[in-house]
């Protein structure tokens, strides 16, 4: 399986990154209609996700695992909530289009723009992020870099091949009469669950 190519976590902390940038990141992400939930630990992360699931009445979810999700037991929590969860790439391919929610992990956030950086080398990641109407990502809240330039300092060290990018709020258009409309091709809701506690034992 062609998974995430780079252990991006090895870059953190950088000289300028840190949770002190989180307030700016949060403000910018919210300014572009992103939903931001900063939580102290795995338990709170799980509860936040379940609230989102209940909020949209999700029945079906496609999930690509990440260390934060595993630590919080997201997949199991979803299942025990009665949500059908798909985690295998072939299943994700078959069901992403009809799922209510897509869940994945992202590597870091950018304070200047409120963006998150994600390695989408794995096809499953891309399907999960683009097809369902609600996309939820998990982010270590200390992994925030100040700006685009710093983000590219990291990217240029690690991006050799594959599919990477920033996601900044939900999908949007202003193509008809310049009226901003959220949710065109991609998700109409984009939520970031930022976790303060780093998962134990994982590579992170």
């Amino acid at each position: 399986m062609n998974t995430i190519g780079e252990p991006w976590q090895r870059h953190f902390p950088t000289a300028t990154s840190g949770a002190h940038l989180f307030p700016e990141f949060e403000m910018r992400a919210k300014a572009v209609s992103g939903e931001v939930f900063r939580v102290p630990d795995a338990t709170a992360a799980r509860e936040t996700l379940i609230r989102l699931v209940d909020d949209v009445g999700a029945k079906k979810a496609v999930v690509v695992e990440s260390p934060l999700q595993e630590a919080a037991g997201i997949t199991e929590a979803l299942r025990s909530r009665g949500v059908t969860v798909y985690t295998e790439p072939t299943d994700i391919a078959a069901h992403a289009e009809t799922s209510d929610i897509g869940i994945s992990g992202v590597e870091f956030g950018i304070a200047e723009t409120g963006s998150v950086f994600q390695d989408g080398g794995a096809i499953a990641t891309r399907l999960v992020t683009i097809l369902p109407p609600l996309h939820v990502v998990f982010l270590p809240s200390a992994n925030i870099v100040p700006g685009i330039t710093e983000a590219f300092d990291i990217i240029s060290q690690s991006f050799d091949r594959g599919y990477v990018g920033f996601i900044t709020g939900p999908s949007r258009t202003a193509d008809i009469e310049r009226v901003l409309t959220i949710g065109v091709h991609g998700p109409s809701r984009f939520a970031i669950i930022a976790v303060d506690e780093t998962p134990k034992g994982g590579e992170a």
């Binding site: 572009v32 200047e112 989408g120 050799d160 990477v164 996601i167 900044t168 709020g169 999908s171």
Partner: peptide, 13 residues
Amino acid sequence: LMTSYLTMIAGPT
């Protein structure tokens, strides 16, 4: 400040 998506693709995925 940034568009919703910035995507960079190097080689076939």
